[in-house]
């Protein structure tokens, strides 16, 4: 597994945890109160901020852990060769994942606009955008991981 593959995997796991935490804060409130009274703003802000911080921390920890493991297994030269050296295949895969993630985000934005036009509650618009942004990143990452393992 390459350096960028590890980083992408760690990022995907982290974002899944953050989304699950957000879901646990908000979903239990649904059905017990009107959506206009559901307290989602705080958890959403926390999820976004913590998600960004956690993804950075995870990337650093994965990098350090991988460097230590590679040093023990194959020596310092292997670390110098593998780390931070984004080659042309990494760039191709990155662009592919980002492009597909971008398409998903575009669809999410259009759906959110449609919710606004149909005068849905702010709750649905905000959560539609939140989940759409998460799906965009997650699908982009999954595409990258498949590309690393498959035809790239």
């Amino acid at each position: 597994m390459s350096f960028y593959e590890r980083i992408n995997t760690a990022g995907l796991v982290t974002s899944l945890i953050v989304l699950a935490w957000y879901g646990l804060q908000v979903v239990p409130q649904m059905g017990t109160a009107p959506v206009s009274e559901i307290a989602y703003t705080g958890p959403m802000i926390i999820a976004v901020v913590v998600g960004v911080i956690l993804s950075v921390i995870t990337a650093v920890l994965v990098s350090i852990g991988s460097a230590i493991w590679l040093t023990v297994k194959e020596g310092k030269d292997a670390v110098d060769a593998e780390f931070g050296n984004e080659d042309e295949r990494d760039k191709h895969i990155g662009r592919l994942g980002d492009a597909i993630g971008g398409h998903v985000l575009s669809v999410a934005v259009i759906l959110a606009l449609a919710l606004i036009w149909m005068e849905f509650e702010t709750f649905w618009v905000a959560n539609g955008l939140f989940v759409g942004a998460w799906l965009s990143a997650a699908i982009g990452t999954v595409v990258k991981l498949f590309a690393y393992r498959g035809a790239f």
Binding site: M1, S2, F3, E5, A81, E82, N85, D87, E88, R89, D90, Y148, G150, A151, F152
Partner: peptide, 14 residues
């Protein structure tokens, strides 16, 4: 390139 890329080229995957 990385070893993974060299491997992918050799295997005809990239």
């Amino acid at each position: 390139v990385t070893r993974q890329t060299a491997l992918a080229i050799e295997q005809g995957r990239y």
